[in-house]
Amino acid sequence: MITNGDLVTRKSYQHDVLFRVKSLDGSYVKLMGEDIRLEADAPIDDLRQVTGTEYHQRKSQIDKQEAYSYRLFRQDYRLLKEKRESEAGSGYANAKEEVNYFQIPPRILHIDGDPLFLKKCIQLYEQLGLQVHGQYLHEREMPDQVMALVEKVQPEIVVLTGHDAYSKIKGSMRDLEAYRHSRYFVEAVRNIRQHHPHFDQLVIFAGACQSHFESLIRAGANFASSPARVNIHAVDPVYVAARVAYTSFMDHINIWDVIRNTISGQEGLGGVETRGLLRIGMPYSKEVEDLS
């Protein structure tokens, strides 16, 4: 018997995605991806419960993917750090002693339609050494409430994500109404851009699984999902935000450098040319310790 919170897969999709049951309504069930940002409905007789052994096998595979992406990002971070240190040192080539620098990373506002994914993302931001203000909002609430949060937090990076899905029954891939939550992400991005039009002063990531990529970019997102209408992993938005956060504002970001560290890759994520947001200062002193 299927109940709320159960882990299941769908027979009609060859058990490709692991879901958690969110709610039941008669013979239909609302599902949320356990590791990907996909929301779906399914008849209860299309579901199969996942055993403990199978869950651990699937979880082990996901953990390996996450660990690999994390290692890639840390490698890139070290390269970026070496570049900053080299540039800082060359600027003081004639100094009598070494001059240490400090860095001021951007403020990040992460708004998520899934409280469990939000918690997971916050933990990853902390692992990556970034400070973030996290806020849970249902996707349909984002357009109306996003500006109040932006004005309160004053971020340089805004992440708008949660769950989404494309349905062929509702229309073609070009039709925004054929997507579960894309229109809410689009409206929220548009509302932000009305007040913050400069792409290099406020960087926006928007979207979830199978989201309407083109509409999000046209609305004003710097980065979005999903060009090939594929599923994206829960933590992919964090890696996009982190790459922007750790790239100097003097440098343009290579879009491939952003998406190659993600689990979803170029089919799941894309964007437009954008500058980094990290600012370097010197000399280092105890008074600015809390800034770095």
Rank of each mutant, 00 (worst) to 15 (best):
K11H: 02
D16W: 11
R20P: 05
K22R: 09
G26W: 08
S27E: 14
L31D: 00
D35E: 01
R37G: 07
E39C: 02
P43L: 14
V50L: 07
T53F: 13
E54P: 02
H56G: 03
Q57S: 11
R58I: 12
D63E: 15
Y68C: 15
S69W: 04
L72F: 14
L72R: 15
Q75Y: 14
R78C: 07
R78H: 11
R84C: 08
G89L: 05
S90C: 00
G91M: 03
Y92T: 08
A93K: 08
E97Y: 11
E98H: 10
V99E: 06
N100C: 08
Q103A: 11
L109Y: 06
I111P: 09
G113E: 09
L116R: 01
Q123T: 14
Q123I: 05
Q123S: 14
Q123A: 13
L124N: 00
E126F: 04
L130N: 01
L130H: 01
Y136R: 01
R140A: 06
D144T: 14
V150Y: 06
H163T: 08
A165R: 08
R174L: 04
D175P: 00
D175T: 01
L176A: 02
E177L: 02
R180W: 11
S182T: 04
E187R: 15
V189D: 05
V189Y: 10
N191C: 12
R193T: 12
P197A: 09
F199K: 04
V203T: 05
S215W: 02
S215K: 05
S215Y: 01
A219R: 03
A221M: 02
A224H: 08
A228W: 10
V230I: 15
I232V: 15
V235A: 15
V235I: 15
A241W: 01
A242K: 03
R243T: 13
R243C: 05
Y246H: 01
T247H: 00
W256F: 13
D257K: 12
I259F: 07
R260V: 09
N261P: 07
E267Q: 03
V272Q: 02
I280W: 00
I280M: 09
G281A: 11
S285D: 04
E287I: 11
E287D: 12
E289S: 12
D290I: 06
